[in-house]
Amino acid sequence: MSAPTAISADVRTSAQQVGFVGVENIVKRFVTPEGTVCAVDDVSFDVRHGEFLSIIGPSGCGKSTLFNIIGGLLGDYEGRVTVGGETIRGTHAAIGMVFQEESTFPWRNVLENVAFPLEISGLPKAERHERARHFIGLVGLDGFERRHPAELSGGMRQRVAIARTLAAAPQILLMDEPFAALDEQTRLLLGDKVLQIQQSLKQTTLLITHNITEAVQLSDRILVMTYRPGRVKRIVDIELPRPRTSEIVSSTAFGHHVAEIWNDLREEASRGMRDEEAHARHRGAL
């Protein structure tokens, strides 16, 4: 486990004009019983300071592999990840991660969950609870401080996880399909909440998703990936006005963007489906 490294103020300022997070020529291969599989192939992009960038692609395109590489949970890859121009390896204090799976600690109440990173950094109890309460309020969970995750809905638990990550004051918020397990209405409303937070904190955010509506609703730019091996197919600018809410989904421009992304994705998703069918047939024949 590598220790977090600090990013100098000069670098941070200059990074506001150029890419704040840089992903350069990332290649990741996995060795499987069937042979070596290239999950991500020569992927390069950057995320600007305060920008909301989504990475979208069909299942099996290496989105989660990229999430783990950028977050520092996965090593042994080619290329480099930079934050503020500095190459990082391993987990990094500048990057806060929100996971797809339910990740709150069931033995801690909401307040203790959100205060967790502050407790690790050694902040006194009163101070960390005060800061945790601020982030609990930010995700709209005032009054639930003493509840345990088992007493909350899936959407509320995911908001606790987001608040916990934000409490660590990361410069980059990295989220891997955080709303994947939620129903469509909750997903749209939580999207509103994420937009509000992102806009109020000017938080640089990188979202991994397979949901086109979610990506268009939230993003400044969307990176479309190809099916295996995962490559950058296209980066689409989302020219929708900000501040946004979920009401934007009824606009013509929104529909236009959704159609545009789907046109790019359809071919990749079909390729993925054919590939999976071929694998299933092969397995059946064995």
């Binding site: 486990m1 220790a3 977090p4 977050g71 520092g72 949970l73 987990t91 204090a93 990057i95 806060g96 991660m97 996971f99 990740s103 600690f105 967790f116 990173p117 690790i120 990550t165 660590a168």
Partner: peptide, 8 residues
Amino acid sequence: NVGRSFNL
């Protein structure tokens, strides 16, 4: 992984 992301 949450623990790792917080550099525990």
